Simulated assay, not measured.
Amino acid sequence: MFDFLKDTNKRKLFIFNYCVFMINGLLTLSVGSLLPFIRSERGIGYGFAGLIVSLHSVGNLVACFVAGALPAVIGKKKNILFFDLFFALSYLFIIFGKNPFWLAAAFFLTGIARGASSNFCNTEINSLAPGKAWIINGLHAMFSVGAFAFPIFLTILTANNVDNWIIACYVMVGMGILSWILYLRMPIENDKVEKVEKGKGGLGFFVEPIFYLCTGTLFFYLCAEQGVIGWLITYFEDTGLLSASLSQLMASVLWIMILAGRLLTATLSTKIKKENLLVIMGLGIVFFYFLLINSTTTFWIVAGIMGFGFSMAGIYPTTVSFSGGIIEKFPMAWSYILTIASLGSIIMPSIIGKIADKKGIGPGMASVAVVVLIDLVSIIGLVIYCKKKGEKVSL
């Protein structure tokens, strides 16, 4: 299972990718964690807040598509080094940009950096062990480490002075520089993406049902994920269900459970059919999200968050592992899957913001319940298709 680690370059590629993806987790969680502070400092409403969270997802979508195609022209290393520059730049915009335009640009650039890193790391790690669920789950576990660390760090910084949130932005500038250095030092084989052989590439994946089933599952999953990540802290604070510091800690609890879930899923995926794991996780996100939004006491809120985070943990990487075969057959398929699925993370934060402006943040967050139900239906469809096809499970 770990034979590829005997090769020095592959071992470095494995370690460096895991490290930069952890930093990418810091970047992603900072969007939702910093939002209440930015709203208070800059005086923005729910509508504009939803817009800039969506702009983060727009940047992610643009990067997933462009950063997936550009390596064929300039090479993979130059491509990721260029897009990762926007990591540090985005936080400089947040720090020094005092008007809505610079704030919008900053969130867009965070999405650019996140999307490019996601595309690169998922592709490179998948190439080390194509279709293996454990290695993708491990990668996303590292993302979770960075994700749960940021709210804790921000809570400590702002415990005695809320204005210290700006220090977190300076730290993120440093993290952006560190990630760029790691990419610079990363050994990359086959740097130039070659044109695919006739009959092996192109857009033939559009006639493959598995493409639509995987994309649909990821689309609705990302709707729920970005909706919750972007608005969870604001929801707790503005409804008065939890204090500001406890709200930040709940974001960390969410990602600690996601980390635990991904580590468990990575282990179980070598022993249990991933189709069965995916259905269990789909049922879990529905049950625990309904518990979360209907809870008014701290105990049940925490229970809902823990269960939701644990259940959602392996959905993305496990679904990605189902697409390993089609990506290997059609190299361009991954960019299209990411691009289309990312539309979900663009649409949902704005929908929540619009509903919150008219009816309140409570009904806004309740709209995510519809999304998790649809995602469960998509998961069941994917599993039924795979069982009918009699596809072997990659462990």
Rank of each mutant, 00 (worst) to 15 (best):
F37K: 01
W255V: 10
K359S: 15
P349D: 05
I181V: 15
R11W: 10
M312V: 15
P100R: 13
F205P: 04
F107H: 07
A224S: 13
V253P: 08
P349L: 11
I379D: 00
N9M: 06
L85R: 07
G324S: 14
S30I: 10
W231G: 09
K195V: 11
I152M: 04
I95E: 02
M257F: 15
G282S: 10
G174F: 14
G282V: 00
D238T: 14
G111I: 09
S30F: 09
I23T: 04
F108A: 09
I315N: 10
F82Q: 05
K392G: 11
N119Y: 03
L218K: 08
I229P: 00
S243H: 07
R42W: 07
G45N: 15
Y212N: 03
P100W: 10
K271H: 12
V145S: 07
I74V: 15
A88K: 07
E194I: 03
A63M: 06
I125N: 08
L232H: 04
P130N: 14
L218Y: 07
S118M: 13
V20K: 01
W102E: 09
T339A: 08
K200S: 08
N9C: 09
N24K: 01
C386W: 11
N190S: 15
F322P: 06
L103D: 00
T234N: 14
S350E: 01
N161E: 13
K192I: 14
G32H: 12
M365G: 02
I258G: 04
I272Q: 11
T239M: 01
I380T: 08
I80M: 07
V58S: 05
I125H: 06
M281C: 15
I38Q: 00
A266G: 13
V393S: 10
S345H: 01
E275R: 13
G111Q: 03
G176S: 06
